[in-house]
């Protein structure tokens, strides 16, 4: 079996365990924690796709995440039923990405400026929404609440039935299913013609264009797909905690997403999930046990990884696995 097929089977089995196995063994309290990890893992996947495969250094993935969360909050408070708010929470980030992508890619903005612009967009949201504390900042019946955020956001409900809430531990299974759908969806996308061309742009943009592919359009679409996934993650996050505040747009948060990717390894989807869960788990554990300051430990780990394992953990283990398999093959022959 090829490594690719092996990886696909492994991830398939792991998804089944995640969706059916974990809820059967893990206690309710932990399941609620896991749901958050899963929402974040979806966010991590969105940047892994945009940055790791599209080569688009988007430092403002949090802008799409936060916009998804706020859109959901505002819409569901006004509508009461969650189906349309969820879709809007995906759609608005997509539109923002299309507009941003149009200006950045069609304007041939260089990679560094692209990082700065996307980061700036996220920070603009941070300050704008932060300044919305007054009574007068309302959208319909939803108060934005400034830095205090928006409390009591209604949960997701069974589509068409607002009284059947999917909350607390019940949110776990839908979230896990969505993670699997996003993961396998991205793998399929990357294996398609679109995905191949996207990676070829990362490898050599000038050559891809000389072959007749419109890199600007393809990168804009990739950014929009990533934004939609980030928006979905934001919706889950907001529904999970029934709360959203401008910290979702903060520098610390957007930097964390980048860190998940680097820990897991740039250019792998699996790594993005592992890196995210690992860091989140560690942060939660440190927060609970108070052994050391979370930010100092995470910062130190981050520096250590960038210096010692610059390719990230998953590519490192993949290489290790290849070497071992080759050795065994040689010994067997």
């Amino acid at each position: 079996m090829s490594r690719n097929a092996l990886g696909l089977w492994t991830m398939g089995v792991l998804s089944l365990v995640l969706v059916f196995g974990v809820p059967a063994i893990v206690e309710t309290f932990a399941l609620i924690d896991f749901t958050l990890f899963i929402a974040m893992a979806i966010l991590s996947l969105s940047l892994a796709f945009v940055w790791g495969f599209g080569g688009i250094l988007c430092f403002g993935q949090s802008a799409f995440f936060g916009l998804g969360a706020y859109t959901y909050a505002v819409a569901v408070i006004n509508m009461g039923e969650s189906t349309v708010p969820i879709l809007l929470g995906i759609l608005l980030p997509v539109i923002l990405a299309l507009v941003l992508g149009y200006f950045m890619f069609y304007g041939r903005v260089s990679d560094v400026y692209l990082a700065v612009i996307t980061l700036a967009v996220s920070l603009v949201f941070y300050y704008l929404i932060g300044a919305s504390a007054g009574e007068e900042y309302k959208i319909g019946s939803a108060r934005l609440g400034g830095y205090n955020g928006m409390p009591s956001v209604p949960p997701i409900n069974v589509p068409g039935n607002p009284s059947a809430a999917v909350e607390y531990e019940a949110l776990y299974v839908p979230a896990a299913v969505l993670l699997a759908v996003v993961y396998f969806g991205l793998r399929a996308l990357l294996a398609s013609d679109f995905g191949r061309v996207l990676v070829s742009i990362r490898e050599n943009e000038a050559r891809t264009e000389l072959l007749g592919y419109d890199a600007r359009r393809i990168k804009t679409v990739a950014l929009a797909i990533g934004a939609g996934i980030a928006g979905l993650s934001g919706v889950l996050f907001c529904a999970w905690g029934a709360y959203v505040s401008p910290t979702v747009f903060s520098l610390v948060f957007t930097a964390q997403i980048i860190m998940w990717i680097l820990v897991g390894g740039l250019g792998t989807l699996t790594g993005a999930i592992l890196g995210c869960v690992l860091i989140q788990y560690l942060a939660t554990w440190l927060g609970e046990t108070k052994i050391a300051d979370v930010n100092i430990v995470l910062g130190a780990i981050f520096v250590a990884i960038v210096l010692l394992v610059p390719s990230g953990f998953v590519p490192m283990f993949a290489r290790l696995g290849d070497t071992l398999m080759r050795r065994r093959g040689e010994a067997g022959s």
């Binding site: 000038a206 264009e209 000389l210 072959l211 007749g212 592919y213 419109d214 890199a215 600007r216």
Partner: peptide, 8 residues
Amino acid sequence: EEPHSIAR
């Protein structure tokens, strides 16, 4: 014209 459309 853009490179990709000339290529096309």
